Computed example of a mutant assay.
Amino acid sequence: MVRARPSMRELITGRTRRGFVGRGAERAAFRENLELPPEDERHRFLFHVHGNAGVGKSFLVRELEQLARERGALTAYVDESAGSVPEAMAAISDRFARQGHRFKELDRLLATHRERRHEAESTVVETGDTLEPQPSAAGMTAARAGLVGLGLVPGVGAFAGAIDPAQLAQGADRLRAGLSARFRNQEDVQLVLSPERVLTPVLLTELADAADTAPWLVLFFDTYERTGPFLDGWLHDVMTTDRYGGSLPANTVVVTAGQRAFDTTRWGGFADFVTDLPLGPFTEAEARGLLADRGVVAEPVVEEVLRLTGGLPVLVSTLAEARPTDPDDIGDPSATAVERFLKWEQDPVRRSAALACALPRRLDADVFRAAVGCPEEEADALFG
């Protein structure tokens, strides 16, 4: 039989993995964990990878996913493209479908959820005092209050503080009543108001069925500094409680990766079931290994790369790609570093403050105020 030619994705993945350098201890810990049955007290159900931007978290997560696949695991990968728990479930379902395990009932409910959510958002002005085609300012405020009160606005914290609590409650009650009147099926109402309550039990059933066909299920949640605010509480519930009428299958391993350290406030009581994987810059040996793998071996060049990058993996890799043979050939990695560090910060004032404060070697509140030149009443918030 003629073997099918590998796809472009498979070739790219193979080349990338062959160039993977370092993180040997982290990979070994994850690999060894998959050799232990869930009942073994040494087995860990959650791995948390964390470190500064550019330290190689996503690169390591992708490598761990490949290690899991090599051991027959079914895997799913969720990143910041998911903006809610239902969207994260949709990403999990999509990844399992690509591996031959369709979550038919979950997909059906997710489609209904999207339809009902769209209907609710498109008619939300009906919760105000008028049914104007162009709603009044008061009607729009009531609509926003209703959406925030029911948790239908991503980043709810940014809005809730600007809305009167009484208005928030009143708007939520109006929207809830309007949805109940519009959708006769109470499941449809719940799919808008509390989608996790309807969808999570179905997801757990689908995962349990898949778990019977594979040695491991491994769920990866990357960019957790963005997704953790809405995923962390839900993930804690499905792993440690029966709030949704079940729990994850025992042969499931969860991997989260983000900039922030492990949340001991929520997860502290389960520390014995967690492996914390803090990532720092490459050691000199690891950085030299990556450079050598890229053909960068001239000592003056290697020393200059080490000096410029401080061992930050993304910068070492960026400079190595150009295959410099002379120190004068090495570019300035600053632009890449800044883009990595400020990738998610869109506010121009906060970006400007971060850039100004990157210049001094040491920083305190006095230096901050001198560097940024902001009004004193704004200083505390920006300094944080």
Results as ranks from 00 to 15, higher is better:
M239Q: 14
T123M: 03
G228I: 02
T75G: 04
S334Y: 00
V297T: 13
E115H: 03
F30K: 02
I163N: 08
V367F: 05
R260P: 07
P249S: 12
G83V: 14
R27Y: 09
E225C: 11
D272T: 03
R3I: 05
D188F: 10
L207H: 05
D94V: 06
R71W: 01
E132A: 03
P333G: 07
F221C: 01
R9C: 07
V124C: 09
P281H: 11
P229N: 07
L147N: 02
R98I: 03
S58H: 12
P215R: 04
E63R: 05
M1E: 15
D94R: 09
P38E: 07
W344Y: 12
A379P: 08
G149T: 10
F96C: 00
L152A: 02
T256V: 10
E26R: 00
D263Q: 09
A158C: 00
I12D: 14
G14L: 10
A29L: 07
D40E: 06
L248P: 10
E126H: 00
G54S: 01
S7A: 10
D242S: 15
D107P: 11
G14N: 03
F30N: 06
A29Y: 00
A214H: 13
D237Y: 05
D364V: 02
R323T: 11
G149W: 11
A285H: 13
E187Y: 13
G310L: 03
R226P: 01
L179C: 12
P135I: 02
F262S: 04
D212T: 14
G258A: 01
L150E: 12
L67R: 02
G14A: 15
L291P: 08
R5G: 03
F20Y: 11
D380K: 12
A172Q: 15
A214C: 12
A172H: 10
P133F: 11
A322M: 15
R116N: 06
T256F: 01
R174H: 13
L308I: 01
E321P: 00
A356W: 08
A166N: 03
L193A: 15
Q259E: 14
T141Y: 01
A143C: 02
L204N: 10
E26M: 00
L359N: 05
E206Q: 15
D326Y: 04
A210G: 09
R144A: 05
Q170W: 08
L219G: 04
L204M: 06
E10Q: 11
P215F: 05
E225T: 05
V372C: 15
L231W: 06
A354I: 05
T240P: 00
G245I: 08
I163S: 09
P135E: 08
V274D: 15
M140E: 15
L67H: 05
S317G: 03
L36S: 02
V78G: 04
A138S: 08
K104G: 02
A210S: 13
V202S: 04
G178N: 11
K343E: 04
L106N: 14
L312T: 05
L235C: 10
W344I: 00
R351G: 01
G280E: 14
I92T: 05
G178R: 14
L36H: 07
V238I: 15
N185I: 11
R95D: 14
Q190T: 13
T283A: 09
